[in-house]
Design a protein around this nucleic acid. Structure first.
Length: 151
DNA sequence: GCCAACGTTGGC
DNA sequence: GCCAACGTTGGC
């Protein structure tokens, strides 16, 4: 089982939204590197749910991959912000995952705490200038994040 | 294939 | 609102 970190602006979709809905298709990824990471995810992988452009900023909870290689439906929806006119039904460009809610942390594990606990090499999200919305979290970092969140 | 211009993300 | 750090686009 691998761990990932998924960013979302809570104004658009928050951990509370996922808690209420139970599961969701992680749609709207339009960056190839992020997409490629999602393509390599497996059912059962755990994902840290990160609130970006928010207060507080940081990891708000945990979810789990329940389905992989899900065709992102928004790419074919002309009314969606994520509509991609270059994508074709027979050859969709954007695949993603379905995730289910696992837990909301008792408190947000803030970016500041993550920056204090990890170097950029240990955890991508604390790297300066990092903009990726999907990134891998190695097993040592994942274990330490869960320990910090449980404190 | 290069690269300048432009757009986006996201912390601060 | 600013701006660093990219990614994308399109002319050549």
């Amino acid at each position: 089982m691998n761990h990932w970190l998924l960013k979302s602006e809570p104004e658009a979709y928050s951990i509370d939204d996922l808690a209420r809905e139970g599961e969701t298709i992680w749609d709207g990824i339009r960056n190839y590197q992020a997409r490629n990471y999602l393509k390599s995810a497996a059912v059962g992988d755990r994902c840290f749910f990160y609130h970006s452009s928010a207060d507080p900023l940081g990891i708000a909870g945990l979810c789990e991959v329940t389905e992989t290689m899900v065709v992102d439906p928004t790419q074919f929806d002309p009314s969606s912000d994520y509509f991609d006119p270059k994508s074709r039904d027979a050859e969709p460009r954007w695949h993603t995952v379905r995730v289910k809610f696992v837990e909301k942390f008792a408190r947000v594990l803030t970016l500041h705490e993550l920056q204090a606990a990890f170097t950029g090499d240990e955890l991508m999200v604390v790297r300066k200038g990092n903009r990726l919305s999907v990134m891998p979290v190695n097993e040592d970092a994942a274990r330490r994040i869960l320990e910090l969140a449980a404190r």
